[in-house]
């Protein structure tokens, strides 16, 4: 490999934002700390979204105390499929997906079986703060398992893809689809080996992707090309992202959305410190769009106006890349 490292000047020219710049100039400047609990606690996020009329996966129940884990079988009795996740988890950590039952056992999407005792232990770990930031006591959320929209069915092997939209000052600036892989155990987490696929903001069409920080245009399991697919409900997704940003008030926000077969786009979670892989997935730095928005004295209030803004920003991108 000749090019193990990129020249910083070239990265800068391409508008690539590094972690340090993201922390100092985006997160610290646009995300007031007191708003973090709104996104760090998924229960609060869910409630806020419901109040704002944003669609979310239905909440089945919340486990708050260790002794409640013993009644887990009754809590789960009504549901064959569900997801258990920590309310304060980060980076998609600690999410357990149950795809069905098999006798006394539960079945994971990978078809592995898991006993009720193991599920209880899992929940108990969540409660004692194993997945929460700083190990603080946490709640376990049991919610609707998204029946995923077949739009990416041909490409992926298992799991539920989700869509990450980066919203800056209330305007979506970049997005990617995160495709689970065999390696990521069906999870849509890039750190665990999921593939990120860039999305053209104005058309909602998929592009190439990123796998383990490397650009990659085919899915690792199916070898199918990831580009050229139209994301369904694209405008709804963008409007949802805008509504989320307005609801929580964070200036630099990551909005994670899943596509349900029956219910359409659902808000999964919000992230106050969204990562920068979206730049690799889209093969474009974020700086151009962000600078264009920073230069604006005000951002239009209506979602439609902002969608127009999204498209104008894409034009900027295009002219920059062609130039």
């Amino acid at each position: 490999m000749i090019n193990l490292f990129a020249r910083p000047s070239l990265l800068k020219k391409n508008g690539v934002i590094g972690i340090n710049r993201r922390n100092a100039e985006l997160i610290m400047r646009y995300n007031p700390r007191h708003l973090y609990p709104l996104v760090d606690d998924k229960l609060i996020t869910k409630q806020l979204a419901l109040d704002a009329g944003i669609a979310v996966p239905e909440l089945y129940s919340v486990v708050e105390y260790q002794r409640e884990t013993r009644h887990l079988s009754t809590l789960l009795a009504a549901h064959d499929e569900f997801v258990i996740k920590p309310s304060k988890g980060s980076g998609g950590n600690g999410i357990l997906v149950i795809a069905g039952r098999f006798g006394d056992h539960f079945r994971k999407p990978s078809s592995d079986l898991i006993s009720l005792g193991e599920v209880e232990h899992y929940v108990s770990n969540i409660l004692s703060g194993m997945y929460s930031l700083g190990g603080v006591a946490d709640k376990a959320i049991i919610e609707y398992r998204v029946k995923f929209d077949p739009f990416f069915e041909d490409i992926i092997f298992q799991g539920v893809p989700d869509i990450r939209v980066i919203v800056f000052r209330g305007v979506p600036v970049a997005a990617m689809v995160r495709l689970p892989t065999r390696e990521s155990d069906g999870k849509a987490n890039l750190h665990q080996g999921a593939q990120g696929v860039g999305i053209d903001m104005s058309t909602g069409e998929s592009r190439g992707g990123v796998l383990h920080n490397r650009y990659c245009t085919t899915h690792p399991d199916t070898r199918m090309t990831t580009s050229g697919l139209k994301i369904p409900h694209w405008d709804t997704i963008l409007k949802m992202a805008i509504a989320c940003a307005d609801t929580v008030g964070l200036g630099y926000l990551g909005v994670d959305i899943v596509m349900d077969r029956d219910l359409g786009p659902l808000l999964l979670e919000l992230n106050a410190r969204p990562g920068l892989n979206v730049q690799i997935a889209n093969q474009t730095g974020l700086q151009g769009a962000i600078q264009a928005l920073q230069a604006r004295a005000s951002i239009p209030a209506s979602a439609d106006e902002r969608l127009k803004l999204v498209r104008s920003l894409t034009d900027i991108h295009l002219t920059e890349t062609t130039a």
Binding site: A6, R7, V16, G18, I19, N213, R214, Q279, I280, Q283
Partner: peptide
């Protein structure tokens, strides 16, 4: 107040440059 790239990011984001 250092907002420049990290050394590992020069590696991580290299695909954004090499394709140009």
């Amino acid at each position: 107040r250092y907002t420049g790239y990290r050394l590992t990011e020069l590696h991580r984001f290299r695909s954004l440059v090499s394709r140009q």
